[in-house]
Amino acid sequence: MIAPTLENDRVKLTLLGMSNFENLLDVSSQKDLIQFSPSDISTHEKLKAYVQTAVDGYYHKTIIPFIIYDKQNQAYAGSTRFGLINWKNKVLHIGWTWIGKQFQGTGLNKHMKFLMLQYAFETLEFDKVEFRIDERNIASRKAVEKLNAKLEGILRKDTLMLDGFKRSTCCYGILKEEWPHIKQAVFKGFE
C-alpha cells in the first residue's frame, strides 16, 4: 500500500511516521488537545507510542496516518488518519484528528476533510466513510454534521477513557452515492 499525498492550496497531508512525528511535539503538548480521545500524546514518549501504533496499522493495511501541514501558516498543525480500513466491505473511518488550538476554527479541518473524502470515494472507490465521535464532543459532532454526515446511532458506553470514564460514541456516515451532492453543496469551489 502506498500512502497518498493529499494536497490543495491550504493543506498538505503526508504519511506520518517515526521520521517526522517530532514536528508535532509543540502541538501535541497543548493542554486538553485530545480530551475526548482514549489516547495520550502529551509527552515525547507518548506521542512516539501513538505514532508507532499508527505505523503498525499502516503496515497491516488498516490505517493510513497523516501529518498535517498548514500551508497558509507554514506550520505543522497536527495529525489525522484513515483507520479501521475494511478493504473487502469498502468502508473506512476518518478520525484520530487533532490540530493545534491556533489552527482550530480557521477552515483547515474542512480542507482536510474534503481531500480525505475525495480520496476515499473517488480514488479508493469506497462505499462508505464513517466518523466516530465522543458523544460529549459537541464541537467535533457539529463539524461532521456540517459535512452532511448522517448520525447512524450511538454506541453506549463503548470506549474506556484514560480517566476510567466509559464514553458513548456517536457514529456518523457518508455513503458513496451521497458524496456528489455533499461535494457540490458543502465543498463548492474546493477543487
Rank of each mutant, 00 (worst) to 15 (best):
G100Y: 13
Y50W: 15
Q52P: 00
I64D: 00
G189H: 05
T53C: 12
K46H: 11
N137S: 05
T169H: 02
Q184T: 12
Q102D: 15
L15H: 05
F36T: 06
L47M: 12
Q118N: 15
A149F: 12
M161Y: 09
W87F: 09
Q74I: 01
K188C: 09
D134C: 05
V144L: 12
Q52Y: 03
R136E: 07
H111S: 14
E7R: 14
T14H: 07
L84K: 15
F121P: 02
G164K: 04
H60S: 07
I133G: 09
G17D: 14
R132Q: 13
L33A: 12
I2K: 15
I133C: 11
K146F: 04
D127T: 04
N20P: 11
I34Y: 03
F121Q: 02
G105V: 06
A3H: 06
K150I: 15
T169C: 00
I34K: 04
L108Y: 13
I85S: 07
D163F: 06
D40N: 15
N148G: 13
K71Y: 04
D40F: 08
K48M: 13
K157I: 02
K90Y: 08
D163E: 07
I182L: 00
Q72D: 11
L15W: 03
S168L: 01
L16A: 07
N137F: 01
D9W: 01
L160C: 02
K166Y: 13
T5Q: 12
I41W: 05
R141Y: 04
E125I: 06
L108M: 13
A149H: 12
S79M: 01
S37C: 14
T5K: 11
G173I: 07
I64V: 13
F126K: 02
F103C: 10
K46C: 08
I85N: 03
W179Y: 05
E191F: 12
N89G: 02
R167L: 00
Q118R: 14
G189M: 05
T169N: 01
K188H: 12
S28I: 03
D127F: 03
E191N: 14
E152Y: 03
